[in-house]
């Protein structure tokens, strides 16, 4: 079973293997030039956070993709589980009034 609070699954392959001495996995978030939020762009391996940022610069910003980098070790990410999809997201499907198009406003009122 995949653990409910990690971003990646513990697969059958991963379970009974001895723990290896590998550089941990980091998730990389980049903020572009146009004022948008940091966005997840991918992951990489690095021994520590300093190296993770340096590697992120080399791997993910070679063509002016960003002006700011966040890194976080993948094991620190808590994720919702796919089996919760129904309870989490279905309730919003019936609440169409949350969208502006639900309301008919006469043309003569003007832009709204």
């Amino acid at each position: 079973m995949s653990s409910p609070n990690s971003a990646y699954p513990d697969t059958p392959e991963a379970q009974d293997k001895p723990k290896r001495q590998e550089w941990p996995l980091w998730e990389v978030f980049i903020r572009g030039q146009h004022g948008m939020s940091h966005r997840h762009v991918g992951s990489l391996h690095a021994a520590d956070e300093e190296m993770a940022i340096k590697n992120a610069r080399d791997v993910y910003t070679r063509r002016n993709e960003g002006v700011s980098i966040w890194v976080v070790e993948a094991r620190h990410i808590a994720a919702s589980s796919p089996s919760d999809k129904g309870p989490l997201y279905e309730p919003s499907e019936s609440k169409v009034y949350r969208h502006p198009t639900f309301f008919d406003i006469p043309d003569e009122v003007g832009a709204m």
Binding site: Y8, P9, D10, T11, E13, R20, L25, S43, H45
Partner: peptide, 8 residues
Amino acid sequence: ETLGVTRD
């Protein structure tokens, strides 16, 4: 790696 194998 998201499938449960490591890069190394």
